[in-house]
Measured scan of single mutants.
Amino acid sequence: KKSYVLIKVKNPKTKETHTIVVPEENLEEVLKALASQPNVKVVDIERFP
C-alpha cells in the first residue's frame, strides 16, 4: 500500500497556492526539484492516512 503526501506550494510573486499530491517514496526528489524553483515556496506538507 502506497502512502501519499500532500505538498502545498505558494508562488510569492502571484500569491497563488497549489497543492501537489506525490507518493511518499518520491517526496525527497520532488522537494529537491521544488527547492530549485526560484518562485516556489513550500508552505505545508501533510501525510495521507
Rank of each mutant, 00 (worst) to 15 (best):
K1Y: 14
K1E: 14
K1F: 13
K1A: 11
K1M: 12
K1G: 12
K2H: 14
K2M: 11
K2C: 04
K2V: 15
K2Y: 09
K2R: 05
K2L: 11
K2F: 13
S3C: 06
S3H: 13
S3R: 08
S3I: 10
S3Q: 12
S3V: 11
S3N: 11
S3F: 12
Y4L: 05
Y4H: 04
Y4D: 02
Y4S: 03
Y4A: 02
V5M: 08
V5W: 15
V5E: 00
V5Y: 15
V5L: 07
L6Q: 09
L6F: 07
L6K: 09
L6Y: 10
L6T: 08
L6W: 11
L6H: 10
I7A: 00
I7G: 00
I7R: 00
I7E: 00
I7D: 00
K8H: 13
K8T: 13
K8L: 07
K8N: 04
K8M: 07
K8E: 02
K8I: 09
K8V: 09
K8R: 11
V9W: 15
V9T: 08
V9G: 00
V9P: 00
V9K: 00
V9Y: 15
K10H: 15
K10Q: 15
K10A: 12
K10S: 13
N11Y: 07
N11G: 04
N11C: 05
N11W: 04
N11Q: 02
N11V: 06
N11K: 04
P12S: 15
P12I: 15
P12L: 15
P12N: 15
K13H: 13
K13T: 13
K13M: 14
K13Y: 14
K13E: 14
K13S: 12
K13I: 15
K13Q: 15
T14D: 04
T14L: 03
T14Y: 04
T14C: 05
K15M: 13
K15L: 11
K15Y: 09
K15S: 13
K15F: 11
E16A: 04
E16V: 10
E16H: 06
E16I: 05
T17L: 10
T17S: 08
T17C: 08
T17G: 04
T17F: 11
T17N: 05
H18I: 13
H18L: 12
H18P: 00
H18K: 11
T19V: 10
T19K: 06
T19S: 10
T19R: 10
T19L: 06
T19D: 08
T19A: 08
I20H: 03
I20V: 05
I20P: 00
I20N: 01
I20L: 13
I20W: 08
I20Q: 02
V21W: 14
V21Y: 11
V21F: 09
V21C: 07
V21Q: 06
V21I: 12
V21D: 01
V21A: 04
V21S: 05
V22R: 01
V22E: 01
V22S: 02
P23F: 15
P23R: 09
P23H: 09
E24R: 06
E24Y: 09
E24I: 08
E24W: 11
E24P: 04
E24D: 06
E25F: 03
E25L: 04
E25M: 06
E25T: 05
E25G: 06
E25P: 03
E25W: 06
E25I: 06
N26T: 08
N26G: 07
N26L: 08
N26H: 09
N26F: 06
N26M: 11
N26I: 09
N26R: 14
N26C: 12
N26Y: 09
N26A: 10
N26E: 09
L27Q: 02
L27W: 03
L27I: 05
L27T: 02
L27F: 05
L27C: 03
L27Y: 04
E28T: 06
E28Q: 12
E28D: 11
E28K: 09
E28R: 10
E28Y: 07
E29V: 13
E29G: 08
E29A: 13
E29S: 13
E29Y: 10
E29R: 14
E29K: 11
V30Y: 07
V30L: 06
V30K: 03
V30H: 03
V30R: 03
V30G: 01
V30Q: 03
L31E: 01
L31Y: 02
L31H: 01
L31N: 00
L31W: 02
L31I: 04
K32D: 05
K32Y: 06
K32F: 05
K32W: 06
K32E: 09
K32P: 00
A33M: 11
A33W: 12
A33L: 14
A33N: 10
A33R: 11
L34P: 00
L34A: 01
L34K: 00
L34W: 03
L34I: 12
L34Y: 04
A35W: 06
A35F: 07
A35M: 12
A35R: 10
A35I: 06
A35G: 11
A35V: 05
A35P: 01
S36A: 12
S36Y: 06
S36D: 09
S36I: 07
S36E: 10
S36T: 08
S36N: 11
S36K: 08
Q37L: 09
Q37E: 06
Q37I: 11
Q37Y: 08
Q37T: 10
Q37R: 12
Q37S: 07
Q37H: 07
Q37A: 05
P38S: 11
P38E: 10
P38M: 06
P38V: 08
P38A: 10
P38N: 07
N39S: 07
N39P: 02
N39G: 12
N39E: 09
N39L: 05
N39I: 03
N39K: 04
N39H: 10
V40F: 11
V40K: 04
V40T: 10
V40L: 12
V40D: 02
V40H: 06
V40E: 03
V40Q: 07
V40W: 05
K41S: 10
K41V: 15
K41N: 09
K41Y: 07
K41W: 08
K41I: 15
K41F: 11
K41M: 15
V42M: 02
V42A: 01
V42Q: 02
V42P: 01
V42L: 04
V42D: 01
V42Y: 02
V43E: 06
V43T: 07
V43I: 10
D44F: 13
D44I: 10
D44E: 13
D44G: 13
D44W: 13
D44L: 12
D44S: 14
D44T: 13
D44Q: 13
I45F: 04
I45H: 02
I45R: 01
I45C: 06
E46T: 14
E46Y: 14
E46M: 12
E46K: 12
E46P: 01
R47W: 13
R47S: 08
R47Y: 11
R47C: 06
R47F: 13
R47L: 09
R47N: 05
F48Q: 06
F48T: 05
F48C: 14
F48A: 06
P49Q: 11
P49V: 11
P49S: 05
P49T: 12
P49K: 05
